[in-house]
Structure formats: structure tokens, C-alpha cells
Design a protein around this nucleic acid. Structure first.
Lengths: 365, 365
DNA sequence: ATGAAAGCGCTAACAC
DNA sequence: GTGTTAGCGCTTTCAT
């Protein structure tokens, strides 16, 4: 039995300082003259309760300002209505858009989202996995990141869904990703069809599954046209901001004397950086060099020349991932089978890849 | 007494399915032959414990794969080593940079961060305040957002720090912000000194304290030069992406026949949008119109022409805010006094505001 | 339809 | 230096 029930049944706003204890179901129970189990039933809407008591309890809840203590609830239930999202860089435009969409959908479903920024640091990622585990999250979504996977730190079997990541070492897993191969293929086709013959490929590490797939699609399209541009691969420094690193990498390639008339960059920022390098050397886009980016982020339509880009269906990805995760968490599907969902991509054509004649406002020459 | 202690002292990896219960301090205690309080003491490093037991307990922890249950700990301690960060739009470049920095600093200090995306929705923000409260977070950082403040939903007095937000209705509060007035002043000065006489001001709602302050600084600089540009204020639609909305707003202003030779936009994306509108109408930057943005985000240096911008000290802001919050949470300072920290800003000069003669690569005319 | 009581995993006061 | 025990707020049998 609790010894600390308030004698007068009031919350007693403790004049002076305001470290009043928050009201629990005990206060609600006392105030409405029922037992705590009844209060619990009212709150969670289960069991049969007479309309009268339900009403009284609800009033009492309002009056004392009751709010459920999720720590106690999680402890009792071994679950928390919370999911963790692990992401390598929360300040990256594309990633934060995905995270934002995920959070929105999960919120709709009544889940809170723990967003964890691994800062591309494996040990930090591992710490976060462990923290999420300790916090009893019901599920985890991993967005992008390395293929190595610290699955062994998990002590329970939590629901797990990956986006743009293929965890190695797991026999089965659930994942959602865009059709990166097709994206690379579309980009190369666009450039080749516009007449480009010397197409540079700019990416961060091709060890990431997404970049590798884009590269393979790109290469496939070129092979079909008997082209080979393997001497124009630029792998940029990942410790610099995308645009800056890309500008440096592209600059180096150009200064080394390579002939380039097309560029496919694996994101829009890298495309922008490449364009800066081109412009700084007196080359014009799209007249001298055509460029295609990836993601169709806000910058693609905002910049001048506007940027042709491969659009990924962010909303779709987030929707599929949350649906999958929720099904997993609610045991609607078995967690052993594994599944990979691949979403289509789409080329959005803009100025940067247009043929000269159709480019508007071209008042040069 | 617990009845469910494992009889053999092993975690028994339950062949077949893996819904083994996670080990608690009871399992650790049994395995190392001590009591649970000793285990607790070892874990939390308090009380005097012999080296031998400490060692044995630590081994047992490893062996059974113990991980502390934070729900139980929070319940017991009424705190969670967790803070909430509420932000209007996690996919906004500047905001996500701030959030990223906050998260990094808090992680260093051993705090987990709950990132809450209010999506500029007041009721969602309120829900999040309540959720954070229920989750026993030790502190909350609010980044940007409206001046109205749902403080009444909080049932405990949690530590609270605002960034770029001035909550009305609170007698005292702690806040950190850039010197927005100075930022506006610097921008206007830069443009006016370069010879601009008709300077447009582009912002989202001037109801936000940050925008209002920037505007006032801007206006002050103009007044000192006997200039008045109140006919060139553009307040853009906040339901569209920044760049797009700004492009539309700027386009409308230009098409209405107003003469414009300078633009101050309250962020870099809006500056970019404005430039697009200018370029699309055959105006050149900086030759015909000079432009200054705000934030010095990645895009400012990456775009062409590169963008002059007012740099805010993101790291500094995040550092001050976390220091303040931690002091508040650990009662190192009283939560009644209130404090506002203002950090300096800095103008970063680039091509978009340079005088024509000094602009490189100007091969027009 | 409602109440009593056990127990989730943990910390801390109190014993020895 | 270590063990015993109460209780944080909640859900959930098991009674009635």
C-alpha cells in the first residue's frame, strides 16, 4: 500500500517552489473514488466499465492533470510505442527529408521516433543500437550507412527495417530502397542520347551499395552503346562537404587534361560542385558539358542552370518502411522471412542536360 | 523474492525462437554470487566495493550480456538522461545543422536526444511537449518556432532552453540566439556601400522574432543613409519550399515594374530563388543586382555566382545551448533567473555582392 | 463491473 | 564491504 496518498485529495500546488510530484493513477483513483485498476482500464479502454465511473474517472484525470508515466508503462509492458531511426548524417538534405517523412508517418500511427545521428561513426552507431535496445524501442529503422552491421549488440529481437542499406551478416532482413541501378542507367542514357561521349562519374565511396548500384546501371547503359568511361571515375573525399569535395575532384580531373562532355553525379550537391568546377574553367553547362544529378532535391530546380536529376520517391520509401516496421512490430508478419522492396525512380529533365537549341535564355554566341 | 531465476544460471539461448527475456541485475547477481545491490553499485560506481567482487560482477555482466533497463531506471530515479529537441522542420538545412550539433554535444555529455519534428504544427508541437514530459526527459531545447508557447502542458518543471525563439507568456526563460539585428545591419550596409539604392527585403513571416530583428537591422542601416525601401518588402508564402516561394515572390515584384538593384534575403535558399527570378528575366548578378543571403549554408559557397551571406555560429549556438541546459538540469544554476545569450554574426563576402570590376570570369559584354 | 495484489528492473536507505 | 527490502507507476490475472 502506498503511504503517501495526499490526505485532502488535491494536488496541492506547493507554494514556493514547484517540485510537486506529478500525479499518478493513485491520485486519480482516490479523487474519483475507484481503484487504480479501474483507472487503468479507463485509460486503456479495456475491460467493461460502467458509463458513470468512466465519466467520473475521466473528469478526475483532467482535474489532477494526470499524464501517463511511460517509464512505468514500458517497464510493465516491455514495450514503448517508440521506434529508433539511425541515420549517418541528420544534416544531409536527402537523409533529413527521409527522416522527416518517417517521423511523420510514425507519428500518425502513434509512435514516437528517436532520431539517432551516427555521424558516420561506427562506434557511435553501435552505442546507439545499444541505447535504443536499453530504451525498449519496439523497432529500428536504419537509413543508409555501411553494410557492416552491429546486430550482435541487440539483446532482444526488435523489428528492424533498412533503407538504402544492405546489412551483411544477416541471413534475412527487411529493406526498402530505390532502384539505384535503374537510376544510373537512366542518367547515362540521358547523357549519351544527348551526344555525350566522355562522361564522368562522380561519387563518394563505391563501397556503399547505393553508389555501386548506380555505377553499375551507368556502366551498363554505356556498354550497350560501346562506350567506356572508366578513366573518368571520380571518387571524392568524404570528409569534406559534398559540393566542395566534388568541385575539387572534378577540378582535378579537368586539370589533368581529360576531355569531359558529360557528368553524372550521385547526388545533386556533387553535381552542383562539379558545375562550379566547370564554370570556373570557362566551360558552359549544358552547351559544353551536360550534367545529371541524383535525388531531385530542392536545389535541382532552384539552381541555374536548373539540374536534370533522378528523383527518388521519398514519401514512398518512408511509407513502405513504416508499414513494414509496423507489421513487424505488431507481429502481423513473421520476422524471419525477410523482404526487399524496390521503388522506381524517375528522370526529371531540366536545363543541365538539354540540347543547346532547346535551352531557353541562351544568349551566349 | 523473484520466482523466475534461471535454475542453471545460464541465459539459455532458447533454440527455435529467440524471445528470451533480457537479463536483469538478478541474473548478474546470481551468476556472480552477490546481491543485486552490489551489482547496482558496481554498475553505477558508487559505494565501496572490493576489487575482487567488482571484477567478478563485471565478468558476469559481460557473460550474460546484461544491459541496463532504462525504463526501470527512469521510473526509479524520475529522470532519464534524455533531452528533447523540438524543431519546426527537421529537413530544413539550417535547422538540421543546429540539431546535428546539439545532438553531438549532448551525446558527448552522455545524454540521448529525442528529436521532435513539429512540422510547424502547433498541436503537434503541443503533443510533443506532452510526450516528452511523459517520457521523463530531463530537459527540452526548442529551436525556432512561434512565440506562443504551450508551457502549461508541462506537469513537471523541466529545464528549458530556447534557440532563436522568444516564448511569450514566460516571465523568465533561457535562450540563445544570433545577433539577428546586426546581421540585417551588415547585409544592408554591404549592399548600400556597393551602390545599391533599391534594396528588396525577402523573408517569411516577419512575425518570427528572428526575421523581425533582421528587418530592423536592415532598416536601421538604410535609415542612416536616408534610404527607404519599404516598398520593396517581399513576404513569401511559407507553404512552398523556400527557394520556389522566393522565386515567385521576387518575380512578382520585378514584374510589377519595381526597380531593384539589391536583394537581402533572410536565408540562402531564398536568395537563390531570388537570383533565379532575376536570371530568368535577363538580369545579371552581381552586375545588375547584388544579393546577400543569410546563414552561410553550404549552398552559398557552392552556387555560381557564389553568395555573400551572413554566417551564424551554429557550433557556438549549440554549445551555449547545451551548456545552459546541462547547468539547468544539474541544478548548477537556478531555473528562475532567466538569461539571454546573443552570439555575433559575420558577413562572408562572395561574388554576389562584389563590384563589377572585381568580379572574376565576367565575360559578358 | 470493480477491487486486491503481484511484479516489471532498478536504486537507496537501512541493516550488519 | 555487502545484503535485505521498500517502492517508483503501471498492467493484469484472479477474485468477488
Amino acid at each position: 500500500m502506498r503511504k503517501d496518498l495526499l490526505s485532502d485529495g488535491l494536488t496541492m500546488p506547493s507554494q514556493g517552489d514547484n517540485n510537486r510530484k506529478r500525479p499518478s493513477i493513485y491520485e486519480v483513483a482516490e479523487r474519483s473514488g475507484v481503484s487504480i485498476s479501474t483507472v487503468s482500464r479507463v485509460i486503456n479502454n479495456n475491460g467493461r466499465i460502467s458509463g458513470a465511473t468512466r465519466k467520473r474517472v475521466k473528469e478526475a484525470i483532467k482535474e489532477v492533470g494526470y499524464i501517463t508515466n511511460t517509464a512505468a508503462k514500458s517497464l510493465r509492458m516491455s514495450k514503448s510505442k517508440t521506434v529508433g531511426v539511425i541515420v549517418p548524417d541528420i544534416s544531409d538534405g536527402w537523409l533529413s527529408a527521409v527522416v522527416s517523412a518517417l517521423e511523420g508517418f510514425l507519428f500518425e500511427k502513434g509512435y514516437s521516433t528517436f532520431i539517432c545521428n551516427s555521424a558516420r561513426d561506427e562506434s557511435k552507431e553501435e552505442t546507439y543500437f545499444s541505447t535504443l535496445d536499453a530504451k525498449y524501442v519496439d523497432g529500428i529503422i536504419c537509413v543508409a550507412g555501411l553494410s557492416s552491421f552491429p546486430i550482435d549488440v541487440l539483446t532482444r529481437d526488435v523489428a528492424l527495417v533498412c533503407i538504402d542499406r544492405r546489412p551483411e551478416g544477416l541471413k534475412t532482413y527487411y529493406s526498402v530502397e530505390s532502384d539505384h541501378f535503374e537510376g544510373g542507367y537512366l542518367a547515362a542514357t540521358e547523357l549519351a542520347d544527348a551526344g555525350c561521349r566522355h562522361i564522368a562519374f562522380i561519387s563518394r565511396s563505391r563501397k556503399l551499395s547505393t553508389n555501386l548500384l548506380r555505377y553499375e546501371g551507368f556502366r551498363q547503359a554505356l556498354l550497350e552503346r560501346d562506350m567506356n568511361c572508366d578513366n573518368l571515375l571520380v571518387e571524392i573525399d568524404d570528409r569534406m562537404p559534398s559540393a566542395e569535395a566534388s568541385q575539387a575532384g572534378m577540378g582535378k580531373l579537368l586539370d589533368s587534361g581529360c576531355q569531359v562532355d558529360g557528368v553524372f553525379a550521385t547526388n545533386d550537391w556533387r553535381a552542383l560542385g562539379a558545375i562550379s568546377a566547370l564554370v570556373d574553367r570557362g566551360l558552359r553547362v549544358p552547351q559544353d558539358v551536360r550534367v545529371v544529378g541524383f535525388d531531385d532535391s530542392a536545389i535541382a530546380s532552384a539552381m541555374r542552370p536548373s539540374l536534370t536529376s533522378i528523383r527518388q520517391d521519398i514519401e514512398g520509401i518512408a511509407r513502405e518502411a513504416t508499414d513494414l516496421l509496423i507489421a513487424l512490430m505488431e507481429r502481423a508478419i513473421l520476422s524471419g522471412s525477410g523482404k526487399r522492396i524496390v521503388l522506381p525512380v524517375k528522370l526529371i529533365r531540366r536545363e543541365s542536360s538539354m540540347s543547346v537549341t532547346s535551352a531557353p535564355r541562351a544568349n551566349d554566341i
